[in-house]
Design a protein around this nucleic acid. Structure first.
Lengths: 333, 333
DNA sequence: TTGTAAGCGTTATCAA
DNA sequence: TTGATAACGCTTACAA
């Protein structure tokens, strides 16, 4: 591998000048730049990114922590972040937190020790206090899909409460009154907020929340399966299930059918997130759109703007969910 | 951030000794090690990974190129690789290739310039010759889910031909003879091999391949949708579709139902890969298991063994697919 | 516009 | 078992 030194020798200029052309410093004459570029090409020179990092105190890498590498939801998020950053020549270091406090902290520690210029985290188990302290450290931290009081400028988030509200409101609009709800684990902020929205919609229509038709699971298919089991055992009557995300909805559908219910005739279901498979399951899932891919891109823009001086990027911090109507709700009015 | 220099001063030893402690070099007396460790703790010292990389010519990072960050299949693969590597203190830099030759090459270039100690690639568009040349470069390259002649030691792969064979054989066993096939794009090695296996099973049972019931799409849901459209327009009779992967199967199901077919009564479908959602779609998808998560872990082990001297790791290069029977095939014997 | 030279925080060679 | 010291390949004042 040729070094900057060899380039400088071949081009007949100093190291500094070569460095200037690598870094697109304008104060290099066209003629000199030509010479240098030619020498670089001739030698097949590529700057050593590690040496650059050490000298400039910039690693050009941003750390990403997501709960899982294999989720439909996280896939969209990672893709959004990576795409935007890569275009700017930055690379991402990705690691999962598995929604457990220790693992999330480990993951963050791991990224911090990797000298990332910034980190973008989607954390669920860790407390607001921890995040607040973390943000005071020397590495800038940006928070995905969660709003933390006092860190507004570091958060890219969705109005989950509104999403929960929209979902239940739609179910009610279609004539349902006996409504079950499968929530995510309540230590997760999104799960809490979505449930809050559900309650608001219920209250707005003078509907009571039936505790027996409320199940707390995780954000996976198994959560939906457990939820349906639970509701059926309870012997309560219900015609619809509002699910805290699409995976839960998918699991709920599977289990409901195993119980002999046909969908959506006997049971209406609504999801949340609008991940890719939502439109391919049967019946096609009515759900709440979560623009997580855009949010990922926005988070990336935020770091480009704040950390890498890409000025004139305009940032949207708060995103709104919207209803996506498909075929999984039966109108029983 | 305290540096090695401050630690050495506080501990009253030389830089070299501190470095030895960091690197678990055995030739340090217990007493000295104690002193150094204590000083480190006192200062909250963490070695600067970039400086380590520059001095040691090791970045402790491995690059990963997958087609998409958001696929169910790639999610499992990334998770497998990352988990194993992280445990060993290495980090992964992930970037997508989007199944396009230029983008795959760009991605690889990008990772190479990042001074990865090795790269693990899942490439589909790039040629065997390119890969062969790439493997001669100074950065070791490992290839996922593809067998390249002459690079056996660098490949972790599945017997896709066998998988294709097993799928079609199962369909035949259940009494079907009018069998459609939705293939992946044929520039992709897996797609080619799976189709080959299909043909072998057909031939073994003296069944003709009906060209009108063969569709080439991509590995996404849209491929399945297009395939079903195509078959229905052809007016050919068919009772089963063998799909080159689960996404295709999912799309095919969706479209078949829109055409009024009920599943699996009117149409049997089998997938390939056994991604997570396969067991949650309706009817539950019979498919071929692709142990991609294990393969990811194995690829990681391979780099640990070859690059980071984790000896006594034993490597399996070739994996076998197996049939996963669920509910999407009707027995019409 | 260009060059000189001092870092950046480690590792690794050699000698003691 | 320990210590000096020269790399590693680049950036960046500062000077010219």
């Amino acid at each position: 591998m040729p070094t900057i030194y060899e380039v400088s020798k071949l081009a007949g200029v100093s190291l500094a000048t070569v460095s200037r052309v690598t870094n697109k410093n304008p104060s290099v004459s066209d003629k000199t730049r030509e010479k240098v570029l030619k020498a670089m090409k001739e030698l097949g020179y590529h700057p050593n990114s590690i040496a650059q990092s050490l000298a400039s105190n910039r690693s050009n890498s941003v750390g990403i922590l997501v709960s899982e590498l294999q989720g439909a939801f996280f896939g969209l998020m990672m893709a959004g972040i990576e795409e935007e950053l890569r275009e700017a020549g930055k690379h991402v270091i990705i690691t999962p937190g598995h929604s457990e406090e220790d693992k999330e902290k480990d993951g963050i520690e791991f990224l911090l020790n990797r000298n990332c210029d910034a980190i973008i985290v989607h954390v669920e188990a860790v407390s607001d206090e921890y995040l607040t302290k973390l943000c005071q450290g020397k590495t800038p931290v940006y928070i995905m899909s969660r709003y933390v009081e006092g860190l507004a400028e570091n958060c890219i988030y969705l109005d989950n409460e509104l999403g929960g509200y929209l979902a239940t409101k739609e179910i009610i609009k279609q004539g349902h009154t006996d409504i079950a709800y499968i929530a995510g684990q309540q230590f997760k902020p999104d799960a809490r907020d979505r449930l809050l929205g559900h309650k608001r919609a219920l209250a707005e229509h003078d509907l009571e929340l039936n505790e027996k038709l409320l199940h707390f699971g995780d954000f996976k298919e198994t959560g939906g399966i457990d939820g349906v089991n639970h509701f059926i055992e309870s012997k309560e009557h219900f015609t619809a299930i509002v699910c805290a995300n699409d995976e839960i909805a998918s699991g709920a559908m599977t289990r409901a059918r195993e119980h002999g219910l046909s969908l959506p005739e006997n049971l209406s279901i609504i999801g949340f997130d609008n991940v890719i498979f939502a439109r391919f399951i049967y019946p096609k899932l009515t759900t709440i759109n979560n623009p997580v891919n855009e949010m990922g891109k926005m988070a990336a823009k935020l770091v480009l703007k704040n950390i890498y001086q890409h000025d004139k990027l305009s940032i949207t911090y708060a995103f709104k969910p919207t209803l996506i109507s498909r075929d999984s709700i039966k109108n029983i009015n």
